[in-house]
Write a protein that binds this DNA or RNA. Sequence first.
DNA 1: TTTGCTTCTGGTCGCGATGACATTAAGATC
DNA 2: GATCTTAATGTCATCGCGACCAGAAGCAAA
Lengths: 252, 252
Amino acid sequence: MTRTSPSPDTADAESAETRVAVSTVIFSLRRDGDENPRLVLPLVKRTRDPHEGLWALPGGWLDAAENLDEAASRTLAETTGLSASYLEQLYAFGDIGRSPSRVVSIVYWALLRSDEVDAQSAAHAAAGDAPENVDWFTATDLPPLAFDHNAIVDYALWRLRNKVGYSRIAHGLLPDAFTLADLREVNEAILDRKLDPANFRRQVENSNTLIPTESFRTGSHRPARLYRYNQDVELADRGPLGRPRSHESSTT
Amino acid sequence: MTRTSPSPDTADAESAETRVAVSTVIFSLRRDGDENPRLVLPLVKRTRDPHEGLWALPGGWLDAAENLDEAASRTLAETTGLSASYLEQLYAFGDIGRSPSRVVSIVYWALLRSDEVDAQSAAHAAAGDAPENVDWFTATDLPPLAFDHNAIVDYALWRLRNKVGYSRIAHGLLPDAFTLADLREVNEAILDRKLDPANFRRQVENSNTLIPTESFRTGSHRPARLYRYNQDVELADRGPLGRPRSHESSTT
DNA sequence: TTTGCTTCTGGTCGCGATGACATTAAGATC
DNA sequence: GATCTTAATGTCATCGCGACCAGAAGCAAA
């Protein structure tokens, strides 16, 4: 934890300055009681005055020495202990009334691999150092959040659903090796509708983004072939911006 | 002109604070010598030290009392005297090295109707008060710009081209009434390739975004029917964000 | 007036992507 | 071994779209 400035969206009585915060909508996957995967996201309980006690998106003030996406990666690591498999800027929110003081929030959205989240949770449970004030919520069933964070999550969900349609972004939620059924279930969880297994298979095979392995997942009925993600293919076309650099030290 | 703070991206020696600027990539259309429409955008010549003399995107510091899109509308009006037919947030640029001082620029992109731009230019020419330090450039053939503004324009062009594919956004550059050939030429100018007139007609007719009028444009060969834009249809699907409010006074 | 040219407008054809659905393959369980 | 469930393959109709053709309607030159 290297937080060098106070928590974001906090009113600072003596300052009328506009301040810049960076927050992130972090999506991951968790299976419910019926083994159906659901989108989940981590929230942080506020311990200070504006909206104290309410849940809010993870984030922090922008440090003077870090880029925007570095700030997003940093605060993401501070709350989850992990690094994202996908990170993209979502939107800049800066309406006057969204916080008692003037705060412009640069909001990112990210994907975390579900196996990494599970491993991290297990490690915390074993060590008995589960983080305070952080909990995971079902993305489509959130309590009232601090500031305008409910609307922000809604927008992030909309972007995620859109992007799933024309990108192969769902991989970012899965482990290295997975079956086509795994991948289809992720897409179904995001889009909230059933997909035809045969047609889904045809699409992803033609997309050239998956590399079949010689391993199979056994245990129930006919074994399913395991696939890997083709690293040569970008998860999503981001145009001239490309993928964000993952905080290299100082490449002047 | 109600600018209440100094020009953006300007180094302020005594302040190490992060400051927030708002800039806009403003697209419009101008016909060249061969009557082919081309994408053009207004730039402002810098009169202060960082990159003095270079051309830069119109913009300004974020006022304490205005929302982000209001700042974009304001600076757009300050440079062009017009209001945009389409305005959308593009991206927040905040890399450390992009300016001598730390500046986070919230960049918007906008469309201006070509007839309004032409009328404004004619008015300025008649009154002899053409604005200093503002000029229009062909979007695809720009000089070296200040800061990272070349990359920003490239990204805006990429977004515009993408959006043209799945939205009916090209209307934002045209007058109230226009022919299908007008609209097709705009799309051709944006995408930089020829489109089949018959297929283009079929697409736009099926999209239900145009209302045919009983007027025709005559003068050359077979008269072409004039159409109007169907105001009921959003120019582009922006999800839960909707369209930005155009600076209403104070609707608490 | 006739002919030719250009653009507008409507239509056909074939291909590729997609959704709906049938069929076979292969292991698990009883 | 019979049955069940899921994996994987195949078939078919439809839709959207690009390429292309043909008639309509004005202008201009012969």
